[in-house]
Amino acid sequence: MDSLNIRFSGSGGQGLILAARILASALVSEGRNVAQSQSYEPVSRGGLSRSDLVVSDGEADYPLSQSLDYLLILHEAAATESSGLLDEKSVILVDADQVKSQPAAPLNVVSLPFVETARRLGNKRVANIVALGALAQAGSLCDEAALEKSLQAMTPAKFSTLNMEAFQAGRQLMAG
């Protein structure tokens, strides 16, 4: 059974698990099955944090990622930990400023200023949503409307406008 494997990685507090949950929810609304796992160090803020989605039709045999189709790296702490799961087909989105040890060719790396874009929008905490927008654009992972609906439903209403701006900014970053 072919599955699609997506990893959100970075540092604790960057909202990676939330971004993964938003995408997971949108995928489920389209009839897919999602297994979401996370790994974090025993501190709430700082430290390596990651969330994986294994997307399949029906319950996945093995719910953990064994290779990655899409990888997002938002922090130096996560720069190298996924290298064993990548191949030339993997799409890697890396924050241009936050990650010093950038993966390189022959890997397919797209380096973009997610955190800086979020800061420009007024709140660097929406970097996760900027990155989600870029990932959605890069992979055509699911219907845009479904993703926006999940985004609205799973984030506080008072940040609704900011999150939508961040999401669109991410799409545009990726579209170049």
């Binding site: 489920v28 999602v34 297994a35 979401q36 796992s37 319950e59 719910p63």
Partner: peptide, 8 residues
């Protein structure tokens, strides 16, 4: 893994 796993 099963405790923290989120599945559909």
């Amino acid at each position: 893994v099963i405790g923290h796993l989120v599945e559909t």
